[in-house]
Design a protein around this nucleic acid. Structure first.
Lengths: 324, 324
DNA sequence: GTGAAAGCGCTAACAC
DNA sequence: GTGTTAGCGCTTTCAC
């Protein structure tokens, strides 16, 4: 009997074999006599022995922790949460575990968490880059949702330009000429790319634009101001779900929800139950997470090709608000 | 120069001091002469040395990894995601990191992930128990959202009975006598407790009830059947947001959304933008996560009192659907 | 097939 | 103040 957490040594003593034999059995090596293996298994059982992954990885040749880090904007935001879940599912399929962190677009936190994960010897990192220049990373990294600045690497990201252009063309096809733009943080490549798509679809007829909106409240205020202004647009294009929801609230407040068309980038739960149901360009966060995880595992397994940029297609979902 | 990841030994050699001096500097001990400390810092800088947390924790007396595990139903579900985020915020404040996993109500996965986290020497675990009997855990555990069976421990959970009873009394106060019940998985304590609250408010006048609904589709079908049945209820009470959303869809499909009242347990995004806006009993997932994290840290720090059951209050939010 | 000895990167205990 | 030695729990190497 031992009073501390049992070690391999305790198991060896109980089973009456050498430490190394226990190691062989625990690691599933087949070169152990059946009777010895049985005694080891019995001892493991009776002592409730659990291997110490940290100690094993310290000595092991491959030095893998079978743990990856996932750093996203905010694990409670639907988009990040869906990416997280998809990564987790792919990781589970390979017996890999996931350390998480929310960055809230803070480059300082990004650096601190990436460093902390490195000290924990994670095998790799999936990262939604904050927008500031990145330190070079000491482990394989795959970026999601945004193009990183200053540190090239595999990047998995939506077809922002064509998706945004498609939504705006959809509004144009329904007779709109003056289409207002409500966008997010221009320091991030997503907001910039979606604005490019908007401009590309409209050419020189691009309407009023407000940028750098972060939350529904600010977006609502901006939309109200735009709709009350001179040359008010007859349709709105929004670049992220928080802004879209703010625009929905603005249209309600002005009671113009059936008069002004709306198309938003990024789908959100219950968009189809609103009145009118909201037309969106849906991203595929699950596929983004899954693809990023698979790319990361390839890198961890030694793939050393050039950085890849993988674009995940978006889908226009006409629901009503964009067809007014 | 070294070609592998630099170790303390490399730093010591570069700085011309002993290994132990480097250890002291890296760990912030103040008993080092300033000039030696400066040389060590310079060497750390130039080699880009990063301490190896696994090795340090192996030898250290306190044997803390400063990592906890968080096992929830589904990290992409809004409730779980909000709990996760709140736990993460409390953990960050203490320099602790978070390993996550989604259980999908699967006891097998719960056991496997808890065991894997134990091998990784997490300092503690926050767990939404799957409902099956739990193995005794080898580390401090705090349960969230549900009362565990077979393994007592600190539990942080909403005031399910009084919250549900309050919502049903609210419907009664608005003139409803026949109130239908649509509930979730009865193997879980949450669903049972909310049904108890429903019964308590109605006494022997309890109306038709359907249990074990898992998703909006099933809930929608059950609601349609109930509203088309004999003695159709004039109001519905639902016990979780997935079921509430199913009921909303059912009322829409029958075009009865302004005729049949609805109150749901658990708030959800955009509930206030639906028509009519949905009256709910809001839980406080952030506070649940925060409270659970603090309780876990107390346990990790050695608190050994009796298991505690901490109830987090719910709030009735009348928005329209419950006041018809 | 099995075991003894060495050592992964680091910290504890104790000397100087 | 600083360095030396031992050893955390495990896997490697290499002898038997």
């Amino acid at each position: 009997m031992v009073d501390h957490r049992p070690t391999m040594n305790d198991v060896a003593r109980t089973a009456g074999v050498s430490l190394k034999t226990v190691s062989r059995v625990v690691n599933g090596e087949t070169t152990v006599a059946p009777d010895l293996a049985a005694r080891v298994h019995a001892a493991v059982e009776s002592l409730d022995y659990r291997p110490h992954l940290g100690a094993s990885m310290l000595r092991r040749n491959d030095r893998r922790t079978r743990t990856i880090g996932v750093l996203l904007d905010d694990v409670s935001h639907p988009f990040s949460a869906a990416v997280h879940r998809a990564v987790e599912d792919q990781a589970r399929a390979r017996g890999i575990h996931v350390l998480t962190g929310s960055l809230d677009h803070d480059p300082v936190r990004e650096r601190a968490l990436a460093a902390a994960f490195a000290e924990r010897q994670t095998d790799g990192l999936i990262l939604a880059p904050s927008g500031a220049d990145l330190d070079p990373h000491t482990m394989p990294v795959v970026y999601v949702d945004r193009v990183p600045t200053g540190a090239p690497g595999d990047t998995v990201i939506s077809t922002n330009i064509s998706g945004a252009a498609g939504a705006v063309r959809h509004l144009i096809a329904h007779g709109h000429h003056r289409i207002g733009f409500l966008g997010g943080d221009r320091r991030l490549s997503t907001a910039r790319e979606r604005y490019t798509g908007y401009q590309r679809a409209l050419g020189r007829r691009a309407g009023p634009a407000v940028h750098d909106l972060h939350d529904p409240t600010a977006a609502c205020a901006a939309a109200v101001a735009m709709l009350r202004g001179p040359d008010a647009p007859t349709a709105l294009f929004t670049t992220q779900s928080t802004v879209t929801i703010g625009a929905v609230r603005a249209l309600r407040r002005l009671d113009r929800q059936h008069a002004v068309a709306l198309a938003g980038f990024d789908d959100f739960p219950l968009a189809d139950l609103l009145d009118p149901p909201v037309t969106v360009v849906a991203q595929d966060p699950s596929r983004i997470g899954e693809t990023a995880a698979l790319a990361l595992f390839e890198r961890i397994d030694g793939y050393a090709g050039e950085p890849r940029e993988i674009r995940i297609p978006t889908t226009l979902i006409p629901r009503g608000s964009g067809e007014l």
